[in-house]
Design a binder for these strands. Structure first.
Length: 415
RNA sequence: GUGGCUGUAGCUCAAUUGGUUAGAGCGCCGGACUGUGGCUCCGGAGGUUGCGGGUUCAAUCCCCGUCAGCCACCCCA
């Protein structure tokens, strides 16, 4: 063992990078379909960009240090502060609503676990400058369509939606005070993972009475649009967003679920998370509306490559081969090599992926190699056919072969 | 950062109560196979048993430390 990557950091072998590229390509494709433009910023930022704009939770896990110019810097843990700066600098010139996406590599200094490393790539999609619920629906539809583009259906992933305004209103209506809201949200967030008695203890310590405590659990248990009737008007945006998703034909993916509140403090409205339907993995994506962060109404979500990659492998929808060879050329003897080299280059000039054996070997050996490399066909150049201006084209999948004029092969035609 | 579990070949795993030279399958390389792949058979390479220390005549096995991975907490980009 000659050492390995730092804990929480990854080496991407060809098969790993092939998956990553597939993920990125799918992200870009769907984002493009929704009219989002790609942007990027620096991976290293001034430390205070985060200490000022991010919550405590993020700041504690910053990958930060002092650089050689004696500046306090940090590897970016999230994209939103960078986005905020970029938008703010040109806010007057940019036509609203802004639809932007980015695929930054993000960092955090924290002990790693499955699905959670010190570094990951995360698709960020944001809409800035639109307060209406159709913007929320648009963003959630994009997240769902990304799943569909990967070949996943409603049996594989579910989008769970909630609205902080609704939860807040319901809690206040049942006697929870403003001051107790923070604890109540934290309890709701954990209601599926932490035993109830521990949560009751948390509430008691914050001075929440037993009747109000019951209310917290009642709210956390609310499911479906009908369950929101009690909230009245505040539930209107959430209802509209869900209706819009249904009209797009994505209703099967969507469930209203009041346990979704999101950890970060800056969310102000509709929030959502994308889960694998079996709930074996961590959340695939999460986001929501954060109207208070910029001077503009804004919303966005993040989707990391780690959990998503695990899910794709688990559901067997990850791509297999990273290269697709059009042909593998075989020189039967040393005298055939010049023709093979000529042919290889001519085919490559025409954009066809071509390989040939880099050292002399028997035809059997070379065919094995061709097969192992995943070539669609082998072109066998031997003295007999060559003297007649021909070569053997062998289809490696059907094991059929035919003699084809070299002149034709040089022009890129295999039959 | 806290606690628990686990570290043997590239991968998945063996190795008697502590006992000789740490094995197997898959993968990799070569051969059977000198102009026709996937199969089969044969051979080969590959290990400081994560690392360091301790106990012992003897440690993959027991003890301590450390590092790494997994799980839970914290938190959830």
């Amino acid at each position: 063992m000659q050492g390995k990557a730092l804990p929480g950091f990854r080496d991407f072998y060809p098969e790993d990078l092939s998956l990553r590229n597939h993920i990125f390509a799918t992200w870009r494709s769907v984002a493009g379909r929704y009219g989002f433009e790609e942007y990027d910023g620096p991976p290293l930022e001034a430390l205070d960009l985060y200490t000022k704009k991010s919550g405590d939770e993020i700041v504690q896990q910053l990958y930060s240090f002092r650089d050689k110019g004696d500046r306090e810097v940090a590897l970016r843990p999230e994209m939103t502060p960078t986005l905020a700066r970029m938008v703010a600098a040109r806010v007057q010139a940019l036509r609203k609503p802004i639809r932007w996406f980015s695929i930054p590599q993000l960092f955090r200094y924290e002990r790693q676990q499955r699905g959670r490393l010190r570094e990951h790539f995360q698709l960020n999609m944001d809409i800035i400058g639109e307060a209406g619920p159709l913007a929320d629906a648009e963003l959630m539809a994009a997240a769902v369509d990304i799943m569909r583009a990967f070949g996943l259906g409603p049996g594989d992933v579910q989008l769970r939606i909630s609205d902080r305004r609704v939860i807040k209103s319901l809690l206040l209506g049942r006697g929870v005070t403003e001051a107790q809201l923070g604890t109540a949200f934290a309890v709701i967030d954990r209601s599926e993972r932490v035993p109830k008695n521990a949560l009751e203890e948390m509430l008691r310590e914050s001075g929440v009475g037993s009747r109000e405590s019951e209310a917290v659990f009642d709210v956390a248990g609310l499911r479906g649009v009908d369950a929101l009737k009690a909230a009245g008007e505040v539930a209107e945006p959430l209802t509209q967003a869900v209706d819009a998703l249904k009209e797009m034909g994505l209703g099967e993916f969507v469930s209203v679920d009041m346990t979704i509140v999101r950890g970060l403090a800056y969310y102000t409205g509709i929030v959502f998370e994308l889960f694998d339907a079996q709930k074996k993995l961590r959340a695939i994506a999460g986001g929501g509306r954060y109207d208070g962060l910029l001077d503009q109404p804004a919303l966005g979500f993040g989707m990391g490559d780690v959990v998503l990659g695990e899910l794709l492998k688990e559901r067997d929808v990850a791509p297999k081969a990273s290269i697709e060879l059009g042909a593998f050329l075989i020189a039967v003897g040393g005298d055939d090599l010049p023709t093979v080299l000529q042919l290889a280059h001519a085919l490559r000039e025409r954009g066809i992926a071509v390989e040939y054996g880099l050292r002399q070997a028997g035809v059997r050996k070379q065919l094995e190699l061709a097969s192992a490399r995943g070539a669609a066909r082998a072109v066998i150049v031997g003295p007999e056919e060559r003297s007649a201006g021909l070569a053997v084209v062998r289809d490696l999948r059907t094991s059929t072969e035919a003699k084809v004029p070299l002149r034709q092969l040089l022009n890129g035609y295999f039959d």
